[in-house]
Write a protein that binds this DNA or RNA. Structure first.
Lengths: 327, 327
DNA sequence: CTGAAAGCGCTAACAG
DNA sequence: CTGTTAGCGCTTTCAG
């Protein structure tokens, strides 16, 4: 900028005015400066700008479990869209559902002075965020509510959705319904398990611990667990998968299984309706979740200081076949 | 930092030393400073740090067509992983395959002084990047080679992959093979069309322009075009879809079509093998592409000044059924 | 309409 | 082992 000023024979401030389209620059001067800028290939340094202005880096952070998972990439896409409309960029990080990794990502984002953070928490305790909140960083939770602190959150009706899924299986006459779930620490898995238990309780069925498989990290784990459940002395006749990866594993097993086994999965799939055995799911809208959370964040950045809000998005049971198999 | 220095009764520089774990601070002093930092909730401002050090913001930019598309989110995930290993974060942006949008995103990234950019170009001309390259920003192209400038690139064997796909259909006896492709400006679509034409030429078949459908922006467009092709007086007996969205549209049509029509698509799908009509695809590895490109970028950032490299990743034809249907 | 000086939060270079 | 000074590239404040 100094170089531009020297070359155009004006003061630094004048260049700054031109760059920022401020008023009060003579047309001739402006033309000369604009020209010099182009000639020298000058580009404003937004780092320095943010530093000096002391606020708004026009950047928000997004921490999800894994951008490679369509659920999260759907969120990411929507967030990016809203951010772009506001002139913001987004730094995305995947926590791999790991507590420490989550904290590390958040810390880095804060060090870079992002204006706000959209967080899908992996851990159960986000008290580590208290200093950041105090400093004024806006934070909105996605998919799972905050632990140990108050904050805005956009979540799904997990208990209700799971309950409806399992009720649906019960209505088909199933009594032995296996549960496939990932890490027990992730709150959504817990809530969906609650829905599962509530449905069974509603039908007067006691939960058989052997039908509950936890700590499954990926589709392969889920597939192994599904095979297990179908090989029990008193095997499961139906499966409830708490998320898309669990469903994927289950699908892989059921696809090669002779006697039909019922399956309902949480999270929808792109090709769900065109499968050999179209899968019945608890569907919801990841993009709506991302967009809602992002809008909430920008409302906070715009000065909204109302009480913490919790938005609960609905889920719908979409019957496609795999859930309508009798025992 | 000044506050910490004052509160701990040391100089600014000493705090800086502690924060950066530099040598030469008395254990007692260090403890005092560390304590004060925690007490005051101090966090180093990486913006100011980057500004002062004059290099490395430890951030790279990634511009893709649409993070919501599994092809791109697979890339994003791999890029993020490599970046994280290097202590970098990544700012991701979706161009929506729009030329202007691409330039705007790149400009913003440059203003933020990212150390490097991974770019899936939407447009055909990236000469606008010349000033950035001159300034030292590292740039690696993904999926499509640069236009008008020299730069590293990681691409697929598009012509070869498409040719094999169409050869495969020809081997089944097909003579009227429809082509579904998106924007004609996107180079990958052009190359895949070249492969299509080459295969037909190899079989001594002239290209029928009515079988070529271009400018399809999404799966819905592709579905409409596919229906058209099957409703011709002399209808297509097979379809070649140039990417996952085109395939999706075609699948949707073929799924409800009585007489079987052959289909081969470029890009693999997660559930491809479990579909009612398992889809034959030209498969490749998006994650490998992202990782390779990211590693190339970091090699450049580490000082590699060799000539521009072009890495061509292989494609494989995976026969699953939809491509093995006779006319 | 234009410019000079000060300073954002930090680190590099040099003292002590 | 610790402190002082200058300055990264920009904007803000105030004075022409």
């Amino acid at each position: 900028m100094r170089d531009v000023a020297a070359a155009a024979d004006v003061s630094l401030k004048t260049v700054s005015r031109v760059v920022n389209r401020e008023q009060g620059v003579g047309t001739a001067t402006e033309a000369r400066v604009t020209d010099t800028i182009r000639r020298l290939g000058f580009r404003r340094n937004d780092l320095a700008r943010s530093l000096r202005r002391g606020q708004s880096t026009a950047t928000i952070g997004l921490v999800v479990g894994d951008v490679g998972n369509p659920f999260f990439s759907g969120i990411a896409r929507a967030v990016e869209q809203v951010a772009h409309d506001q002139g913001y960029m987004v730094i995305t990080g995947s926590s791999d559902e790991d507590d420490d990794h989550e904290r590390e990502l958040v810390a880095t984002l804060c060090s870079r002075r992002v204006d706000g953070i959209l967080l899908v928490p992996a851990g159960r305790d986000q008290r580590y965020l208290l200093p950041e909140v105090a400093v004024g960083t806006a934070i909105v939770f996605l998919d799972r509510p905050p632990g140990g602190i108050g904050a805005d959150a956009v979540v799904l009706d997990n208990v209700g959705g799971a309950r409806r899924a399992v009720d649906h299986l019960l209505a088909q006459g199933h009594r032995r319904i296996g549960l496939l779930r990932d890490s027990t620490t992730v709150l959504t898995a817990q809530q969906r398990t609650r829905g599962y238990c509530a449905a069974l309780a509603g039908a007067g069925i006691e939960v058989d611990q052997r039908l509950l498989r936890s700590g499954l990290h990926d589709a392969d784990d889920a597939a192994r667990a599904a095979r297990d459940l179908l090989a029990l002395d008193d095997p499961a006749t139906a499966l409830f998968a708490v998320n898309n990866r669990m469903s994927l594993g289950a699908l892989r097993v059921l696809h090669c299984h002779d006697s039909p086994v019922a399956l309902v999965g949480f999270d929808d799939f792109e090709l769900a309706d065109m499968l050999a055995r179209p899968i019945t799911v608890v569907a919801h809208d990841p993009a709506a979740m991302g967009a809602t959370a992002a809008k909430l964040l920008f409302a906070r950045l715009a000065g909204d200081t109302g009480p913490h809000r919790r938005v609960v998005l609905p889920t719908t049971l979409v019957a496609r076949g795999s859930g309508e198999v009798p025992p």
